[in-house]
Design a protein around this nucleic acid. Sequence first.
DNA 1: TATGCTCATGAAAACGTTTACCGGAAAGCG
DNA 2: CGCTTTCCGGTAAACGTTTTCATGAGCATA
Lengths: 335, 335
Amino acid sequence: MSNIRDVADAAGVSPATVSRVLNGKATSLVSEATRERVLDAAQSLGYHPSAAARALVAGRTDTIALATTNIHDPHYARALDVAQAIAEEFGYHLLLMPDADDTRLQSLLRERRADVIVRLRYPVDTADEVAAAVVSEEQVVIAVGPIDRQMPLSTPCACWDDREGIRAAVEHLAGLGHRRVAFLAGRPAQRKERYALEAAGADMTIVPVCIEPGSLDDVGRGAALARLALQREPGVTALLAQNDTFALGALHALREDGIAVPGQVSVVGYNDTFLAPYSCPPLTTVRTPLAECVSRSLRQVMEALSTQHGAVQPQSLQLHTELVVRASTACPPTT
Amino acid sequence: MSNIRDVADAAGVSPATVSRVLNGKATSLVSEATRERVLDAAQSLGYHPSAAARALVAGRTDTIALATTNIHDPHYARALDVAQAIAEEFGYHLLLMPDADDTRLQSLLRERRADVIVRLRYPVDTADEVAAAVVSEEQVVIAVGPIDRQMPLSTPCACWDDREGIRAAVEHLAGLGHRRVAFLAGRPAQRKERYALEAAGADMTIVPVCIEPGSLDDVGRGAALARLALQREPGVTALLAQNDTFALGALHALREDGIAVPGQVSVVGYNDTFLAPYSCPPLTTVRTPLAECVSRSLRQVMEALSTQHGAVQPQSLQLHTELVVRASTACPPTT
DNA sequence: TATGCTCATGAAAACGTTTACCGGAAAGCG
DNA sequence: CGCTTTCCGGTAAACGTTTTCATGAGCATA
């Protein structure tokens, strides 16, 4: 394993010069002749600087951490793709940290394992507690997620309002004539469930349905929830799913049970994942701007980090959600 | 930001003692009284040891790197889940390295950014070139992917034989009476395509169909490939897809064009992702043991790394593929 | 009391970089 | 020729750990 010292010896210069050549910010500091000699030596020795040593002295790890639950959900996988692309663009590495509670994120920061943490889909207003662990001016926590109420954050933040999306879905269903709708929730006391209830007008009832976490995968849970809803709540003519994956399961269950979608029951998803247009029938769903949020906020921070020398001032960004109407919703049957 | 020295001062001991307490392998080396004092001091100072400094001196980063293309494919997302779970179990971090060519993997190793690299889905027999960069006895490259021919590797390896799966699919279709089948390939000269051709018996023709990489997502490409196949290759009664995502697109296209599956055309997927049972109709597909391969080989290496002090001897593992028959295949129409 | 052993702890040397500081040579200018 | 300026590159001090070696205390044994 070769050192910077080995390279220096091979090129007949000092380690400092090698470092200067390899980091080469100001090209003027070293002559063209030595630069070439150093590069040759490094090349022929197969030299790569130790990330640890560099991080230790420079205080940067060139690493972005992505903190999220549910990497298996296509919606988050998309965000991961986006983050990866940006990391690559700026020469950073991507560290994955799923199911990360605040304590683990804080130690991640303190151990200096990452310069930037993108915290996905937790309610953004709890991000400040994590950000409190920020150690240097060059460490940032970015909060990306649904927002409850506008409030000033000390960290960069990109968010959207789930109420907006839910309201659009509910109004769409109400406009079609649905009067009784079931909300297929991941677990009890979901925020979205509250939104759905609050969005329901006087002429519409929303009944939440949920199921204890078990051995089922997400699609399976969606199927189970759909069956439960139709069996337990007579008169329900539409299902509003917690996410597209649940909706996919619901579609499958209804198809198996011989219930026509959207003829007898309408189904609305959430997130507009890449599966939604290809389901059977194509899924009406609410597009949430998760990927866009990650993309914009992360890029902004990375740019600030790479040019300006010092702290990143927290910028907030709020994007809109939007209902995408496809073929899984229609008027309720006229009985 | 607090040091190990700060903690030492606060506890009235030397840094060495703090290190001993915090790494605490042999509990007998430090007295109970000082141990508690140190832990208290560390706690109240919010101390976390610097990952960089630790990595520099100890030569380990406690990091597993996952090298793969296509994180957005549900099949790889599953592998990622598995790897993450194991990393967590052993107290390691997970670094993501998509689209990594050999050069980048080698510098990853040389920079010592990871102790273990899991290299997904490249032909396993090219892994040795990457492993050649292995620097210390405690660095490992694990090769996980389809295998062409059995050959001794210098690195741990978990693989399966795509020919096995392809053959099962082809025989299934042949048994149903299909005589002309299209293979929907990702790009020209795919290995699987070769396998498909070689698996076809005398009484069956396989025509490859492919399409230049473009702006389409994978599902969209599957749809386009299906349409292309049926238009360009008359007499085709079954489609064999490169992967489940393509198959999903194919199902969608056929449904849109009013072609009955499996009545008029049969469709076979590949990989058996979580979507396969829920497609419309449920997808007949070949189950490949990617996740299982990752799980087993990675766990074995991690255990070797954590107990035995020294090199990991390369163990090879080959698992079977298996055809999962669902509802997207049937006899060809009798014209 | 001298000897030897165990046990807890401290001192100091790595690990491989980056960077602030300094010195010397070359060059421009009077 | 002497002075200042510029440019190039070397020296050495960090960065925060882990780990080897040494030291000294306590204690048992002879």
